[in-house]
């Protein structure tokens, strides 16, 4: 029964390869998208931290 499921009447190679290709492509697309989002979030965070730091420095300079 299980063997029949995997062999798919002799067409298992084509069927499983199709599903595997679709699965791997979509996983790749999903993780690449998440990775890109996380990297741009980090850049935005660094940018905002630097901006906040420069603002506090200029505030200190103004005080003097």
């Amino acid at each position: 029964m299980i063997l029949e499921f995997f062999t798919m009447g002799g067409y298992g190679f084509y069927i499983w390869l199709s599903y595997a290709f679709a699965t791997l492509s979509l996983i790749f697309l999903y993780y690449r998208s998440v990775k890109k989002l996380n990297s741009i979030k980090r850049i935005e965070y660094i940018y905002q931290s630097e901006k906040a730091e420069s603002l506090s420095i200029s505030a200190q300079v103004n005080r003097f």
Binding site: Y30, S33, V34, K36, L37, I40, K41, I43, E44, Y47
Partner: peptide, 12 residues
């Protein structure tokens, strides 16, 4: 996810 990336990227 990609839309969020593009918006932040555009802003940065």
């Amino acid at each position: 996810i990609r839309y969020k990336y593009e918006i932040i990227n555009f802003r940065v």
